[in-house]
Simulated scan of single mutants.
Amino acid sequence: MTHYRISEAARLVGVSDDTIRRWVADGILPLDHDDAGRQIVPGAALAAHAKTLGGSTAEVGDVQRSARNRFVGLVTKVEIEGLMAQVELQCGPHRVVSLMSSEAARELKLEVGSTGVAVVKATMVIVETDKEPQP
């Protein structure tokens, strides 16, 4: 079974180490110890809790969407050239890049420092993992 140290678990779900410790203290996450006596969180329990953090609905105001993957972020780059624009958002630890028409970028009034939501709907998603599973 996969386990994560507290700092790794925090990084994976985008919270602080202290938040993971609070979740353990509140009984939200179980805590084990590895062979060296270090505190570890079971990967399956972390994954189950992570699912609750993401929400299950794609409703936003009066609009429903089929896309579930919404990343709120800060616009860090807007590059408009000809008919196309490249817009970059920093959504927590994730950098999301969107290519759109320059008309759309102008209509949305996208500028560095403004907020935006990247909505991702893909028919193909590539998942990578380490060569060797973690203990």
Rank of each mutant, 00 (worst) to 15 (best):
M1E: 03
M1F: 06
H3F: 06
H3D: 05
R5T: 05
A9P: 03
R11Y: 03
L12S: 12
L12D: 05
G14I: 01
G14D: 06
V15H: 09
V15I: 15
V15T: 13
T19G: 07
R22C: 01
W23M: 09
A25D: 15
G27V: 04
G27K: 12
I28F: 06
L29G: 04
L29E: 01
L31D: 00
L31W: 00
D32M: 13
D35P: 05
A36D: 10
A36R: 13
G37R: 03
Q39F: 04
P42Q: 04
P42I: 10
G43F: 09
G43M: 08
A45Y: 02
A45M: 07
H49V: 00
A50Q: 09
T52H: 12
T52S: 14
L53T: 05
L53I: 07
L53P: 08
G54H: 07
G54D: 02
G55N: 09
S56E: 05
T57P: 01
T57R: 13
V60R: 15
V60S: 11
V60P: 00
G61F: 08
Q64W: 07
R70D: 14
G73Y: 07
V75N: 06
K77R: 15
V78I: 05
V78T: 05
L83G: 00
Q86I: 04
V87G: 03
Q90E: 13
Q90C: 01
G92P: 02
R95H: 10
R95G: 06
V96W: 02
V96E: 08
L99A: 03
M100P: 00
S102Y: 03
S102K: 09
S102Q: 04
A104H: 04
A104C: 12
K109P: 01
E111D: 14
G113W: 09
S114C: 11
G116M: 05
V117N: 09
A118H: 05
V119H: 01
V119E: 14
V120H: 09
K121C: 10
A122H: 12
M124Y: 13
V127L: 09
K131C: 10
E132M: 08
